[in-house]
Amino acid sequence: MALLEVRNLEVKFPLRQGELTALRDVSFSLDPGERLGIVGESGAGKSVAAFAILNLIGRPGYIAGGQVLFEGRDLSRLSATELRHIRGNRISMIFQDPMMTLNPVLTIGTQMIESLQAHRAISYTEARTLAIEKLRTVSIPSPDARIDQYPHELSGGMRQRVVIAIALLTDPTIIIADEPTTALDVTIQAEIMELLLALCENFSVALILITHDLGVVAQVTQRAIVMYAGRIVEEGATRSIIDSARHPYTQGLINALPERTRPGERLNQIPGLMPSLLDIPAGCAFHPRCPHTLTVCRFEVPDYSGSAQRRVACHWAGAHGEVL
């Protein structure tokens, strides 16, 4: 049985200009220990999906439909107390900017011990020992000195290591990482991604990696989902998505990689911008930017075709693609 199963999730934000649908018909599943990438441009709904899984959509947003089944229980129906036992305990989350996710006025030790004590009935000393041990796991040098430091005394990379250590503290079964390396230097990015990968493998933690960096997805994940304007447009094994993308949007993303261009040439960017979620084009949301637009694309939202392992929502791919 899948560890996490998201079924037809729909998230809406009622705004003055009308109701904004940030996620529509999002379904995917995650097996224990599996590493899943969620890829898409800014505003595609990746982070909303992450927050929706933990039922942490900020007001005025709400989950309008669908289910998030974690070990068979629907997280969108649990009470606040039941949810607290899952958040940070069974499912942890790592955010984009480690400058912002640590409380600037508390030492990292205080913050680690606090999250441990929120979920385990253990003493301060035990919690501290565990916290130091986790800091060592994420390769922080001299953790017993570092634990009493404030976030501003650590470098960006160190801070993100601390954030990962906090996420690992309670030995969760799933870690959701929301662009964990975008705020870091390129050299540090690789280090942190390798660390995250190694930790997930060693402790067999399932990972949902949200990113717009296809390189990172290729390096870390086994399976990937591509999102566009709040919908999943393509899903499959990471290798097969990268090697033989079916959806014109995914193809566009891959072609836009700098590696696909000779030095001095312009990058192959996808023309146009992602539509505002308040004003999604009729039919396939991608059709105004798509190089293969068919007549049907303008009127009809494409269904998913393919198997559960490899699916794509595209009229063109359905008509022209090889057998999926």
Binding site: I86, R87, G88, F95, M100, T101, N103, P104, H119
Partner: peptide, 10 residues
């Protein structure tokens, strides 16, 4: 974000 982070921590 740190407030989101501690909410996520539960």
């Amino acid at each position: 974000e740190y407030v989101d982070a501690v909410r996520v921590i539960g």
